[in-house]
Design a protein around this nucleic acid. Structure first.
Lengths: 198, 198
DNA sequence: GATAAAAGAACGAGCATTCGTTTTAGGAGA
DNA sequence: TCTCCTAAAACGAATGCTCGTTCTTTTATC
């Protein structure tokens, strides 16, 4: 139509992702606030102007990261919910996914930064709340299945049980990030002991 | 001895506490890094020089806050461990203490800031690790009591069970801080359902 | 050749911290 | 008890630096 020197749309998306990847790397090692735009720009291998073409402020980058970082475990849980495994096995799969994200390069340390920011910045608070409520309802589906399949008693309080199982996930992640303990196998032993008791 | 115009030791301690109180207030509302020394100094009602007499840097203040913020729940748990209540009741008391610290003025939002910092700053990481390992062993005592009193099966894996119960605490606190749900009663229903099953 | 995209020098604001000065507490001497 | 005196304590203007962001210039694309 117009005579335009425009670059492919994939290229634009790729550039955006390139910036967000750099942001994740920087935020992981230096934290949200100790990462300067200079750090981030250098990590991305771009220029100041290029980055500001895609995000109009540092805060906008943080918001974008908040949106992605929170969504990753979601997919694992939804996928596992579809499989209708025994509850303990589902939990095991989810914990495995968490475990993989704990190490260097994993997104969970960045997620912790985001949680912290969420209590301060209402925009990020809203994003986090939205995402984690979706996560909760995925866990809830696991509990509903367990009741339907007779694995949990019919009179089980679904919401209450959901809340506790849901809490076990960040409970595990936080323990590991802050103290290093326990390993996944130990934690799963405890989880099984609680949910598989007759 | 010397002819000294020195102020009472309580006064020195009180001034220190005055600064730390101001820091807690600021960190709660603006976060560790968006709080400037000016903010903190104004909140404390002191002068720049006065604050720098007691702490030689902003980071030193953050470290001091990390030490105190993490220690408060500890006392509640130790106190409750001494009472040898049924396990679920002990958990209820601890969750009540957590609940009180969730609202405005409570220290848990500041604790979340500190956890986040702990993954970045090794000094704070060490403090947090130390404090939360102490907390873990307090929880462990509750589990040991429950086994001794026949409330949990003799073959219970104490460390695994400790890990899960321990995880339930930040699991609850995080849910509440990030999503607002669930209320304590609901969560306790879930906890009781899991640990009191025969 | 026209315009989007990328570059990077420059800028002002705000930061943590320093330091020379002023105030204050409290013991010594009368 | 009152008055100096001194060092600690408090003060706050000044400093240097780094930050996020803007804006003009250059490059690349169709």
């Amino acid at each position: 139509m117009r005579d335009v020197p425009r670059v492919s749309e994939e290229h634009l998306i790729a550039r955006r992702e390139q910036i967000l990847d750099a942001a994740r790397v920087c935020f992981l090692s230096k934290g949200l606030h100790n990462t300067s735009m200079q750090d981030l720009i250098q990590e991305a291998g771009l220029s100041v102007g290029a980055v500001y073409r895609y995000f109009k402020s540092k805060n906008e980058i943080i918001v974008a990261i908040a949106g992605t970082v929170v969504g990753t475990v979601q997919e694992h849980i939804d996928e596992v919910a579809g499989r209708r495994l025994p509850l303990a096995d589902s939990m095991s799969v989810v914990l495995e996914a968490i475990d993989q994200q704990l190490g260097p390069g994993g997104f969970l340390p960045v997620a912790l930064q985001v949680w912290s920011e969420a209590t301060i910045d209402p925009t990020i608070g809203a994003i986090v709340k939205d995402r984690y409520e979706a996560l909760r309802s995925s866990i809830r589906a696991l509990v509903v299945h367990a009741v339907e399949d007779g694995e949990l008693a019919p009179e089980t309080d679904v919401d209450a049980t959901t809340a506790v199982l849901y809490g076990m996930l960040p409970g595990y992640a936080l323990q590991r990030m802050l103290t290093g303990l326990p390993d996944k196998a130990t934690y799963m032993t405890g989880v099984r002991a609680l949910i598989s008791r007759r």
